[in-house]
Write a protein that binds this DNA or RNA. Structure first.
Length: 270
DNA sequence: ATGTCAGCCGGAGGCTGA
């Protein structure tokens, strides 16, 4: 059995004790981190190595930043999402894990742009919603190429997409938000239709299961959340999906991230 | 209506992003 997780930690420095606690108690094999908010040389690699993980990092100053932690090795690391050489935001890293312990699996940690506020001014080249939609087009092209070479793959991260009204506490409140707009949901659906499986949804059909709760307005206490963090499995891995879930425990602790870990467990034998 | 948190610069607290 192999346990993978994705977690937007909202600063790896601010969250280090919380992350180490969770690794110790949950014992995931592979963790995909987003919003580490530091440069590569400031990533606390020693602490994760001491906990038994190999580390691959793609960071930048202040914003964004993604990383992979693995107990089963990391090989063939590559950073950046293809399709725009001018994009300097650190939002994508992929690697092969588990190379020398059975089935090698390609994993990616991605941090899809938020996209708010929408249109201010509407056709400005750095408008955030335009950047989000263009990034999603690049992701979909890249994801298609990942499927075509047949390597079992998990694409995990903070997608900043609310896929359906079941994935937010009050759909009316989100209708004009970049996370829920039809353009956003259509592109995410197009990704799924390539053949990716939302592993959580494949194992839990209930509405109102969330991975993010805003810090403001008592959102956590009222369970005013949204589900925007996903582990998408390619077809051969979806067939091996054992269980999946959201561990909301870290969100309730002191000095929590606004996101909580989403996990899935794969049956790799047979 | 407001409510939060983190990083940056710079040496306080205002700004940005989420």
């Amino acid at each position: 059995m192999l346990t993978l997780a994705t977690w937007n930690v909202n600063s790896v420095k601010a969250r280090l004790p919380a992350i180490l606690d969770w690794l110790q108690s949950f014992q995931p094999d592979v963790v995909l981190l987003q919003e580490i908010k530091c440069m590569d040389n400031a990533f606390p690699a020693f602490d994760f190595e001491a906990a038994g993980y190999k580390v691959a990092v793609h960071g930048q100053k202040t914003y964004n930043g993604v990383a992979i932690l693995s107990k089963v090795g990391i090989d063939e690391v590559s950073i950046g999402l293809p399709g725009d050489e001018t994009d300097e935001q650190a939002r994508y890293i992929q690697a092969i894990v588990g190379k020398d312990s059975g089935l090698p699996i390609r994993v990616a940690a991605l941090y899809l742009p938020n996209g708010n506020p929408i249109g201010s001014p509407p056709h400005e080249p750095h408008e955030k919603f335009t950047y989000k939609l263009a990034w999603m087009d690049r992701l979909n092209r890249h994801a298609q190429s990942l499927l075509s070479d047949g390597i079992p793959t998990v694409l995990g991260g903070d997608y900043n997409v609310i896929p359906t009204p079941d994935d937010c506490y009050d759909p009316e409140r989100w209708v004009n938000d970049a996370l829920f707009r039809p353009e956003t949901r259509n592109k995410f659906n197009a990704l799924l239709h390539q053949g990716w499986t939302d592993t959580f949804r494949a194992r839990d059909a209930r509405a109102g299961q969330y991975s993010f709760w805003d810090y403001q307005a008592g959102a956590w206490q009222k369970n005013n959340g949204i589900r925007i963090d996903f582990l998408l499995a390619s077809p051969s891995l979806a067939d091996k999906l054992h269980t999946a879930g959201i561990d909301s425990e870290p969100r309730g602790k002191e000095k929590a991230s606004d996101h909580t870990p989403v996990w899935c467990r794969l049956r790799l034998s047979d």
